[in-house]
Design a protein around this nucleic acid. Structure first.
Lengths: 103, 103
DNA sequence: AACGTTTACGTCACGCGTAACTATT
DNA sequence: AATAGTTACGCGTGACGTAAACGTT
């Protein structure tokens, strides 16, 4: 997955052209991200992460497991049993996200 | 942007293969989305929307406008002037999202 | 027969790497 | 001289459309 400089240059130029937006400040020697460049980078990373999470979620679900497990308990009292259960569950299915909320 | 059936078939197959997940139930004549297929479709749409929003945000920002404008006002009293201002602002820059919060 | 989908195949564009070049420190 | 970036160029592959085949209703 290592990309050679010219490939990066090409990709950046194309992206800038497609967007019609300057992503890098090239007045100096070392090119630096513009303000918009930072915006695109940050948000772009979030989008990529979301995409990656989606693929892992899809694959997990294909294995027959739910993606999330939302547990809502009424009382704060005697949660110990539940914590134990969660612990046990995580051992056999560590990939499933558990969201625990009280009240 | 219209894609021919075979192109769609190709794309779907590749996606399923890359994910290692069945997205369509093909036992019947008309192919139908599996449960995971629905998940991928819904989440995928969200991701695409986010990507599109990012490009419009980038282009807007390039035009010299902030993407969001967050206004926080102290008192609930006499907000009318602000509402008028917002109304005026929206006329000249309808693309900028305004988030108004009180207290 | 009509519809929905897949398979086979040829084509073209796009993204990449190699290599050479330019400019800044 | 070394570093950072771009430009020129050729190549491979991957996504597409055309066309044909297949299976279901």
């Amino acid at each position: 997955m290592h990309r050679v400089p010219s490939a990066i240059s090409y990709t950046i130029n194309k992206l800038e052209e497609d967007l019609g937006v300057e992503l890098f400040e090239r007045s100096r020697h070392k090119a630096e991200l513009t303000a918009i460049g930072h915006l695109v980078l940050e948000q772009g990373r979030k989008i990529l992460t979301a995409a990656e999470e989606l693929t892992t979620q899809a694959r997990q679900a294909a294995d027959g497991w739910e993606v999330q497990l939302r547990i809502c308990i009424e009382s704060i009292l005697s949660c110990d049993a539940i914590y134990d259960l969660i612990e046990e569950f995580q051992k056999i299915q560590p990939k499933t996200e558990i969201r625990l909320s009280e009240k």
